[in-house]
Nucleic acid binder design. Structure first.
Lengths: 116, 116
DNA sequence: TGCCATACATCGTAGTTCGAGGTAATATGC
DNA sequence: GCATATTACCTCGAACTACGATGTATGGCA
């Protein structure tokens, strides 16, 4: 119920945010994203392929991403780029994240609840 | 799929953290917590009773909280306090939250991945 | 008396994330 | 030439959270 030795439960929504953010800088493919996320968060966040691919598909279906297939060395890679809708979505995500962050951070530090 | 007009999806695990944090300062009852959370986060986080009560029950079942019933003006309130186990759990939660926060914050701002 | 706030609680639904597993092709080591 | 690891895609079932709706009951107020 509490003891899941994998990623913590604050993770919800974070994969989507991270993926959009990384793709904003440059075109990438799924397998590459998996490693890029580990690298950019210095292993603090480690998403498996079973997380990344479904998010990618969902985002594309929602029109936030566009994909193109590109054969490289016989293997086929699916590269993703962020659409304008995706940029907007990323902006909203970052905004919400920041707000929530301030609120929770304040609660952790501030503690004191001044009753009416 | 994306358009949920309620709380964002970063919320996972946050209710538990917030509840433990508030109860660490002083004994409180469920209904009070619902409002305290709104107050302390300045409405950035708004948890319904359908969120707070189940979390309270789960935490007590896990030994992180202790409860006592106290009649006030004919109504019965269930007051909760944090156990040593709960304190430890809160500590771990805050730690994890902070780490994740740094990682995601860095990814949002930094963009570029600076190896070692 | 009717209504709202207090105060507890549970249920079904919806959405995420996770690990495990499955398919292929290329590169590497022996 | 052959086994293994790496690259690269993908899907599935299980588990968990969080949510709104709903239900019960009491006290205060008009």
């Amino acid at each position: 119920m509490a003891g899941k030795s994998t990623n913590p439960n604050f993770m919800n929504g974070v994969p989507e945010l991270l993926i959009l953010r990384l793709l904003k800088d440059r075109e990438m493919y799924g397998y590459e994203l998996v490693q890029a996320i580990r690298a950019v968060t210095r292993d603090a966040v480690s998403l498996g392929e079973g997380v990344v691919y479904p998010v990618l598909h969902a985002l594309e279906k929602d029109g936030a991403l566009k994909s193109r297939r590109k054969p490289v060395n016989g293997r086929t890679r699916v590269y993703y780029t962020v659409t304008p809708a995706g940029q907007k979505r990323l902006g909203a995500l970052v905004d919400t994240w920041t707000k929530l962050n301030d609120a929770v951070g304040g609660a952790i530090r501030g503690g004191a609840y001044v009753a009416a």
